[in-house]
Design a protein around this nucleic acid. Structure first.
Lengths: 129, 129
DNA sequence: CTATAATATCAACCGTTGTTGATATATAGA
DNA sequence: TCTATATATCAACAACGGTTGATATTATAG
């Protein structure tokens, strides 16, 4: 799955919750989080990740592939080894998008909604939201 | 699945990536993100969420249940209606934990790791990491 | 050229989950 | 009590994903 992280910067417009959920799905695995945290500290080849986390080669390669396709990490070949490192810009973008999503005060209260006005349709938020 | 959000505050100690991944799994669905964003702006009953997002009753109830079990939202009964609202403190905690996870400079580089010292085991990061 | 190490990919299994439709429960009103 | 509305739960299905083991690919060394 290729995720367009760029579109997350337009999250303030409120359109790309689908793209954000796809990236969150990438993060929603403890092994991938462990890998990501490791790469945050240090560029590392696959066998290093295996050793540090005690995971199988196939599994690590699989997870790294997902992280790479999501644009969260990048790789670089050197002799037999493939070194993976974090894409800081993408992590910053993602942090910003998530910070906005989880900010209670980020969006104004819904218009035309109050006590006794239940189930009032708000066209802008229907469907594509 | 009951997720202990409190443990996320101890994320700086680096132990609970499992708990964080569980919460991320809750967020990793576009419909749940839409619901969460809606509730961020306004406390709302189930039928309102249905109408705003154009989703079926069973589906909305299901997603709200997941968000509630994760501690992200709370509910309040009033007559026939059950009103759901966001738990701001939990969102703040989560935002903080994610901000730390995605912060490239949050953790110092690994000790005993450098050019030519590949695959050197670092006990503190093995296994439970 | 062969052997070996590092990495990627493929196949298969199985648990999880998003979705839908049907049913159960609860509350209000007549 | 009967009906209607709101919500939760259950059953079932399909799709997705994490894991493992086997195989393929790439690069180095001898």
């Amino acid at each position: 799955m290729v995720v367009a992280l760029d579109r997350l910067t337009s999250y303030r417009e409120g359109t790309d919750l689908e793209g954000l959920s796809q990236i969150l799905r990438i993060l929603a695995d403890s092994n991938r989080l462990r890998i990501l945290r490791l790469l945050t500290r240090q560029e590392m080849c696959v066998c290093d990740v295996m050793d540090h986390l005690g995971l199988g080669q196939s599994l690590v390669s699989h997870h790294l592939g997902m992280l790479k396709r999501a644009g969260l990490v990048q790789d670089r070949r050197e002799a037999q080894w493939v070194y993976y490192s974090v894409v800081s810009e993408k992590l910053d973008e993602l942090r910003q998008a998530l910070g906005f999503l989880l900010d209670t005060d980020a969006l104004p209260p819904l218009a035309r909604y109050g006590a006794g006005i239940r189930c009032a349709p708000i066209p802008e938020d229907r469907g594509v939201a």
